[in-house]
Write a protein that binds this DNA or RNA. Sequence first.
DNA 1: GTCAAAAATTGATTTTTATCAATTTTATAA
DNA 2: TTATAAAATTGATAAAAATCAATTTTTGAC
Lengths: 233, 233
Amino acid sequence: MYREIIYNKYQLGSNFLFEGLSEDEKVLLESRKINHEYKKGQVIFRAGMTPNGIYLLNSGKVKKYTIGDDGKPHIFYICSSGEALGYHSLLSEEPYPDYAETLEDSSLSFIPKDVFLSLLDQSKQLNQKLLKSLSHEFTVFIHSTTVFAQKTVRERLALALLMLKEKYTNKDSKEKPVEISILREDLANIVGTAIETLVRLLRDFKEEQIIETKGRTIRILHPAKLVKIANFY
Amino acid sequence: MYREIIYNKYQLGSNFLFEGLSEDEKVLLESRKINHEYKKGQVIFRAGMTPNGIYLLNSGKVKKYTIGDDGKPHIFYICSSGEALGYHSLLSEEPYPDYAETLEDSSLSFIPKDVFLSLLDQSKQLNQKLLKSLSHEFTVFIHSTTVFAQKTVRERLALALLMLKEKYTNKDSKEKPVEISILREDLANIVGTAIETLVRLLRDFKEEQIIETKGRTIRILHPAKLVKIANFY
DNA sequence: GTCAAAAATTGATTTTTATCAATTTTATAA
DNA sequence: TTATAAAATTGATAAAAATCAATTTTTGAC
């Protein structure tokens, strides 16, 4: 089933990081975490900044991107609710290598560095979950580089739509076709192509009855065809 | 200085993983690790296999690659001496997602799973080093996807040559220009291009006096020009 | 609801890169 | 050393994708 494979190859897996904490640890976490609402388009952190904590995405969506040597953004990941952000830099003791910016109004919790590190020190569970999650990311990233190194833009767009379909799936209304509301520019920066090329390919997909669009919203009608186009298994 | 940046963005950083071990732990490691010599072109592990230990590369070079949906290899990393291999899968408890194969005659040590996991359990140092190393890899991989998503083949080749220059640097004879002996096919699979395109670009670089070739050996004459071509900072 | 700014779309063209088909060179094992 | 298979190179062409230049549509603030 393609959905599992997409999940395995596109999900970094930082969900449920704090699930195995003891009651005491949970109390500490709850007492020290700071909730904050972000409007669409707000930057959470920037490349070059020194991290002083990590973030949990309670609701909403966040794009993670780098800015290439020529100034163009490359969106390498979309976070959806439940995922953690910014733990890499805290652990590697390096400045953020990337930007995090909300794609829609979002709610995040900030966990200060000292809290996170002391939880990490106390909790073997958290430690193991982090090691496991970080190790799994290796699979995600080598898949991603292989896709960019070998697949055509059309194939990459098909994969990007399948990935976004999972990210935009509404757990409540599973029957309806998934609707993805995203700027063409952002989608182009996920796929790694020019906006014009992206638009033409979307038109092709529309003509092939694979998607429907309404304004900037894309509705996925036929994921199986995308799997085929992407030549994905 | 470009060499530091190359190092930071192209080195996974699993060197010296076992440096902080206690004497007892070192004794355990030494008593249980198994040394093995590999001939050039031997496969160390394959995608889909279940790991039962990790490897340390004592000398030689190893290419790590995936095989894309169309059957073509994508070389995403070159290991040089001192680096560890295969720890991701052991920690993520997933089958290997990639292949490891020697590029030249190489000497490796195998550390059985039980030894590695018990050392990990005992040694806070090892644990921290792993977390740090795995987190740093995030920087390496997002840089890599950005390069593939945004840079031309010519730019990617320039970067690949700079990366290989570091990997092939002989610490003993630092003055001489670095010589890289690599199949055109492997280099094409690092850069993500067709062999013919690669060859034509190498010819351009020769004409521009940036490199020299003799048989399949590439000698880097002018790294600064490669930095410029790659538009890299 | 209106309207200006932003975003999306389309067409024409150029550039980049892959593919196909030889031919030449190099490496390697007997 | 030599034969031979593998690898590298070159040329011609096709395909993929980017760029440039409008024009149309959509969005979001008022």
